[in-house]
Amino acid sequence: MKRLLPFVFALFSALGISQNEENSQIIQEFRATVINAQTNFPLESVHVINLNQVKGTITNQDGKFAINAAVNDTLYLTYLGFKPQKVRVTNDMFKFEDTKISLTELAYALEEVIVRPYQLTGFLEIDVKNLPINTSYQYSISGLNKSYEAGNKNPSAVTKVLGAILNPADLLRNLFGKKPKQMRKLRQMKEDDDIRDLLASKFDRETLIQLLQLEKMDIEDILNNCNYSKSFIQTANDLQILDAISSCYEEYKVLNRK
């Protein structure tokens, strides 16, 4: 009997841990209010993203929001002019409905901007010729239904695309094969209108980094090796970058099946 007691205690302990883990995965509606840390005033139109569930929402005029979440999910809050905030959801936050999340204002220092004159003459036909032209090219391969954007300083773009198809150990597999979990989030991100609206207004890649759990350098490497031009990578908004990564990933899945 004495020998059985430690086993029984261990069994109940394991069951208790398993039950706690199961409870922590229960998804329910989480409510909170977002306020300005300096003034305590509510903030309207703050973007809130559940990084685990890949769902988004925004705060109303009273700074309140509701989003589906489970215990230990991470919420990512962004608002123009304020420092982004990551919040881990706890049991207590579900128990008490007066949860407040504070965002801190950022102080922006405007840097000197040099405007280079284009020596405009006032004659449209002449001025159009003086404006800079984006000379990026689009390459496509029959049957894949995909296109690739390459800069004017990338003469090997076609070779890279063909090499990716003919080489079984291509770079796309090396890029995406090591990050299957992050890449599975792409479809969820594209299906959520709130997340898409947020990404359409972003150009800093910070939200994408949090959602995909990739470094900014990883994102640039993916797009570079999918033959997107430097000008596109630098100027596209985060939604365009998301769609570009998604297209590249869909191509990877086709190649991987082959």
Results as ranks from 00 to 15, higher is better:
residue 39 T to S: 15
residue 91 N to I: 06
residue 25 Q to G: 00
residue 87 V to N: 05
residue 101 I to E: 03
residue 103 L to T: 01
residue 86 K to V: 06
residue 66 A to F: 04
residue 61 Q to E: 13
residue 88 R to I: 13
residue 36 N to M: 07
residue 44 E to R: 13
residue 85 Q to C: 06
residue 49 I to F: 11
residue 48 V to N: 04
residue 28 Q to S: 15
residue 41 F to C: 00
residue 25 Q to P: 00
residue 24 S to M: 06
residue 31 R to P: 14
residue 75 L to S: 06
residue 44 E to Q: 14
residue 36 N to K: 06
residue 73 D to P: 09
residue 88 R to T: 13
residue 78 T to G: 08
residue 77 L to H: 01
residue 39 T to E: 09
residue 96 F to P: 02
residue 66 A to E: 13
residue 70 A to D: 04
residue 33 T to M: 12
residue 81 G to A: 01
residue 43 L to D: 06
residue 72 N to V: 01
residue 66 A to H: 11
residue 41 F to N: 14
residue 100 K to Q: 15
residue 75 L to H: 02
residue 64 K to T: 14
residue 103 L to S: 00
residue 80 L to I: 11
residue 100 K to G: 00
residue 99 T to P: 08
residue 85 Q to A: 09
residue 104 T to E: 13
residue 76 Y to I: 03
residue 83 K to R: 10
residue 73 D to Y: 09
residue 47 H to Y: 14
residue 29 E to V: 10
residue 93 M to N: 07
residue 66 A to K: 15
residue 95 K to I: 12
residue 31 R to L: 13
residue 29 E to Q: 13
residue 31 R to C: 12
residue 80 L to H: 08
residue 64 K to G: 07
residue 48 V to E: 01
residue 93 M to C: 07
residue 80 L to E: 15
residue 21 E to R: 06
residue 40 N to D: 12
residue 63 G to I: 09
residue 63 G to C: 06
residue 40 N to I: 01
residue 35 I to T: 10
residue 26 I to S: 01
residue 64 K to S: 13
residue 89 V to E: 08
residue 81 G to I: 01
residue 86 K to N: 11
residue 81 G to P: 11
residue 40 N to M: 07
residue 75 L to M: 07
residue 28 Q to L: 10
residue 98 D to I: 15
residue 20 N to D: 03
residue 94 F to N: 02
residue 103 L to C: 02
residue 95 K to A: 14
residue 63 G to K: 05
residue 57 T to K: 05
residue 79 Y to E: 10
residue 51 L to P: 11
residue 34 V to I: 13
residue 23 N to V: 02
residue 46 V to F: 04
residue 91 N to D: 04
residue 99 T to F: 03
residue 43 L to V: 05
residue 78 T to I: 04
residue 101 I to M: 09
residue 71 V to I: 14
residue 22 E to M: 05
residue 83 K to E: 11
residue 34 V to R: 05
residue 54 V to N: 03
residue 24 S to I: 00
residue 67 I to W: 09
residue 98 D to H: 15
residue 97 E to L: 12
residue 78 T to K: 08
residue 24 S to Y: 05
residue 71 V to L: 05
residue 39 T to D: 12
residue 80 L to D: 14
residue 80 L to C: 00
residue 88 R to V: 12
residue 58 I to N: 10
residue 64 K to Y: 09
residue 32 A to Q: 09
residue 25 Q to W: 04
residue 35 I to R: 12
residue 88 R to C: 02
residue 75 L to P: 03
residue 95 K to F: 12
residue 38 Q to C: 02
residue 30 F to T: 08
residue 70 A to K: 12
residue 39 T to Q: 11
